[in-house]
Amino acid sequence: MSADPWSRPSMQDLKEILESIGKPGTENSRTVERLELSVPAEIVTSRGNTVSAVTREISRFGLGMLHRGAIQPGEVTVKMASESRQFDYRVQIKWCIPCEKGMFLSGGEFLPKETPEA
């Protein structure tokens, strides 16, 4: 684990935490299918703080992330990048809970893109 308490969790950290959580023994009651997605991300809080993260899963309506440091529920910007482009998403963080290795799991819903005022 990195010495910097705010550094991005490694893919190995993500793998170990997801393995420790395990798969639920009951059927998934979610109404929207989620896909596993492990890519680097940045969370920019309403105060302008940037928290490095790794995504865990994504659906049409939201995403789950793993990061160091607690994030308060509320609106944030989540930045993810491909080889050719950066994607910025407005996300309403709904929950954030501590997990192993001093990290946190969080989840939120995508918000509509802001439209410029005419």
Score class of each variant (00 low, 15 high):
Lys101Leu: 14
Phe104Trp: 15
Gln86Asp: 09
Gln12Lys: 09
Ala81Arg: 07
Ile43Val: 04
Gln86Phe: 05
Thr77Cys: 01
Glu36Thr: 08
Arg85Gln: 15
Ala53Thr: 09
Met65Glu: 10
Leu66Gly: 12
Gly22Pro: 12
Ser82Asp: 13
Arg85Val: 13
Glu27Arg: 08
Glu33Asp: 12
Met103Glu: 07
Ile43Tyr: 04
Thr45Gln: 02
Pro112Val: 01
Ser29Phe: 02
Thr26Asn: 11
Arg30Phe: 08
Lys23Leu: 15
Glu109Gln: 06
Ile93Ser: 09
Ser84Asp: 11
Lys113Asp: 15
Gly62Val: 05
Thr115Glu: 14
Tyr89His: 04
Glu109Phe: 05
Glu75Asn: 05
Trp95Met: 10
Phe87Asp: 11
Ala53Met: 07
Pro98Ile: 12
Ile97Asp: 15
Val76Ser: 00
Lys113Cys: 13
Val54Gly: 03
Met1Ile: 07
Val54Ser: 01
Gly102Thr: 09
Cys96Leu: 12
Glu36Val: 11
Thr45Leu: 02
Arg34Gly: 04
Ile58Pro: 09
Val44Gly: 00
Ala70Val: 11
Gly108Asp: 03
Met80Thr: 15
Gly69Trp: 04
Met80Cys: 08
Gly25Asn: 10
Ile97Pro: 01
Arg56Phe: 02
Trp6Cys: 00
Met80Leu: 13
Ile93Cys: 04
Gln86Leu: 05
Leu63Met: 14
Met1Gly: 06
Trp95Gln: 10
Gln86Pro: 04
Lys23Cys: 10
Thr115Gly: 07
Met11Gly: 03
Ser2Asp: 12
Pro98Leu: 13
Ser82His: 14
Pro5Lys: 09
Gly62Ser: 05
Leu35Cys: 13
Ser52Asn: 03
Asn28Glu: 11
Val54Met: 08
Ser84Lys: 12
Glu75Arg: 07
Val51Gly: 00
Val54Cys: 02
Val51His: 08
Ile43Thr: 02
Asp88Cys: 05
Cys99Ile: 14
Val76Cys: 01
Trp6Ser: 01
Lys23His: 14
Thr115Trp: 06
Pro73Tyr: 08
Tyr89Pro: 00
Arg68Gln: 10
Gln92Ser: 12
Arg90Trp: 08
Ser2Lys: 00
Glu27Met: 04
Lys101Gly: 07
Val51Tyr: 05
Leu18Trp: 12
Met1Asp: 07
Pro98His: 11
Ile93Trp: 05
Arg8Gly: 03
Leu111Phe: 01
Trp95Phe: 13
Asp88Tyr: 07
Ala53Trp: 04
Met11Arg: 01
Gln92Pro: 00
Gly22Glu: 13
Met11Tyr: 03
Pro24Asn: 11
Phe61Gly: 14
Thr77Trp: 02
Ser59Val: 05
Tyr89Asp: 01
Glu36Gln: 13
Gln12Arg: 12
Pro73Ser: 10
Ala70Phe: 09
Ser84His: 14
Thr31Met: 04
Thr55Trp: 00
